[in-house]
Amino acid sequence: MNFNRLIRYFDVSTSKEDKEKYQQWINKDPSRKAEVEKLRMLWNEAEQLQPFDAVDTESDWAVLRQRISSSYKIRHNKIPLRQYIYRIAAILILAFGLSFGLIKIFRTVSQHPLVYKTFESYGRVKTVNLPDNSVVVLNTHSSIRYDHTFNHSSRNIILQGEAYFEAEPNPALPFRVYTGNSVVEVKGTRFSIFEDSAYIRVLVLLGSVSFQSSEDPAVGTILSEDESGFIFRDNTLEKRHEVNINNISWKTGQLVFHKTPVKTALQDIAHHFHKELSIHTELKDSLTAQFTEQSLEDILEELRLLTSLSINHTDDIIVVKE
């Protein structure tokens, strides 16, 4: 079936003569004609779907989730004494339900459709191998989640926090990561996503990805190798033709500076060690150095030698003086 020809046939702006030509082409073959009828129905039905498009399931779920968790708390506070019997009954039903559920899970573990998988890294960097052989490295205090359709009808992941991805190529199933108000779609590539209160940042190290706002379809771009993109919370987009490799120092354990302004270097170091940075002097020099798996104290000692600045740190802050 020649679909390009077909949509020109459906198109209202196609001239009458052209349409007749296409009509003749369709009439030539009865099986083609039946197929065209089906597609025409699909074509026409799609026109009616605006109301579906106007419903944002994702954001309304967030609202609802909030509502049900707060309604639960309120009820919890004022349960009358006589309702204890109900509570016990509820627990029994729950226990029954659970054992029922367990039996069901054991019986149908392979095709049970409701399994949601969540991986959280808590305090340490964690590597997760996905069912499609893609690899995710989660930074601390980050999580990913996907449902039973993963690697079957979709490869959708919800990310909170920061993660590095090596997505396995599969042209039939695009690999999509939803983070905040953004969605990243790839065919197979290496990239990293970082979520901040102000923006979502994506770095592409290999291949290319499509980086879109999930709220405003007009906001989006393609990021290629060695490019980075930012989508801010107000759905504005910024693209840079560079990648700061130190943004994934949490994964590589490496901080690399090549003629980097000292201020930028200090920012990267502070970020890597989860510290605030306070600078009380003007910084003009640049720095070339590489640190691999070194402690903060070691790195600062080298910096002191290289820059002759006074650099000190406490548990949460690095202070730089003349």
């Binding site: 579906f52 419903v55 399931t57």
Partner: peptide, 23 residues
């Protein structure tokens, strides 16, 4: 049975599946 398990995920799945057409 899934809903009665008390787990939020079946409930979330149900919401995700039906919210849009129900609206």
């Amino acid at each position: 049975d899934d809903l009665k398990s008390g787990d939020i995920y079946p409930y979330e799945m149900l919401f995700r599946e039906y919210y849009r057409p129900l609206v």
